[in-house]
Deep mutational scan, measured.
Amino acid sequence: MIINNLKLIREKKKISQSELAALLEVSRQTINGIEKNKYNASLQLALKIAYYLNTPLEDIFQWQ
């Protein structure tokens, strides 16, 4: 199981879903879906999320 901390980290950094989506060149709905565990981010997208949030990938998506 993967624990998804994207919403928590994004909100801590005061970045909206729309802002993050624009940086990543995806839709806001994609970010929303990832945060609600409706969609799994591809490895490429997960790495981009970590880069733009300046946060280690394993802090955003944790295996349990």
Rank of each mutant, 00 (worst) to 15 (best):
L45S: 01
L43C: 15
S18P: 05
Y52F: 14
I2P: 06
E25I: 06
E11M: 10
N32T: 09
P56C: 07
A46M: 14
E58W: 08
R28N: 08
N37G: 15
A41C: 15
P56A: 07
A21V: 05
E25P: 04
E58N: 12
L53F: 07
S18N: 11
A50Q: 04
I60P: 01
L47Y: 11
L53R: 01
K13H: 10
M1H: 10
L20E: 00
N32Y: 12
A46Y: 13
Y52M: 10
M1I: 11
L57R: 03
A21R: 02
S16N: 05
I31S: 00
R28L: 15
L8R: 13
A22W: 05
K7V: 06
P56L: 04
P56N: 08
G33A: 15
L47W: 09
R10T: 03
Q62L: 08
Q29S: 14
A21F: 03
E19A: 13
E58D: 13
S16V: 04
A22R: 13
A22D: 13
I9A: 06
N37S: 09
N40W: 08
N5Q: 06
S16G: 07
L43D: 04
R10Y: 04
Q17K: 06
Q64P: 12
P56M: 03
N4E: 02
L23G: 11
I3M: 13
A22K: 13
W63C: 12
V26Q: 01
L57Y: 06
I49V: 05
S27D: 13
E35S: 03
I34C: 04
M1Q: 09
N37P: 00
I49R: 00
N54Y: 05
L43A: 09
A21Y: 04
Q29F: 08
K13M: 13
R28P: 15
S27N: 09
N54E: 15
A21T: 04
T30K: 08
V26S: 01
K36G: 09
R10Q: 02
T55V: 10
Q44V: 11
T30F: 13
K7M: 07
I31Y: 05
E11F: 05
K38D: 09
E19L: 05
E35A: 04
L43P: 12
I15Q: 03
K38W: 10
Q29M: 09
I3Q: 11
E25M: 12
K12P: 00
K7C: 09
D59L: 10
I31F: 03
L24Q: 01
N54G: 10
N40E: 11
A41E: 00
A41Q: 02
S42L: 03
K38G: 07
S16L: 05
N54K: 11
E25D: 14
Q64D: 14
Q29V: 11
S27A: 04
M1S: 07
I9M: 07
K12A: 14
L20I: 03
Q62M: 10
I3D: 06
E25W: 05
T30G: 00
N54I: 04
K36A: 14
T55H: 07
Y52D: 00
T30I: 13
I49N: 00
S18Q: 12
Q17E: 04
K14F: 08
E19S: 10
Y51A: 09
L57E: 02
T30S: 05
R28D: 11
L43Q: 09
L20T: 00
N37V: 02
L20M: 05
W63I: 07
N4T: 03
S18F: 10
L6Y: 01
N54F: 05
A46I: 07
L47A: 10
A41D: 01
I3E: 07
K12N: 11
N54L: 04
L43I: 12
I15A: 02
A50W: 03
K38F: 10
L53N: 01
Y51V: 08
R10E: 02
E19H: 12
L6F: 01
Q17I: 13
I60A: 02
K13V: 08
F61V: 02
V26W: 02
K38L: 10
T55Y: 05
D59W: 06
Q17T: 08
Q29P: 06
L8H: 14
P56F: 03
N32F: 05
T30A: 07
Q64Y: 09
M1Y: 14
Q44I: 10
S16T: 14
K36D: 13
E58A: 11
E35C: 03
L45H: 02
A21H: 00
K7G: 07
N54V: 06
N5I: 06
F61H: 00
S16Y: 04
I49C: 07
E19G: 09
R28S: 12
Q17L: 11
N54W: 05
G33V: 07
S42F: 02
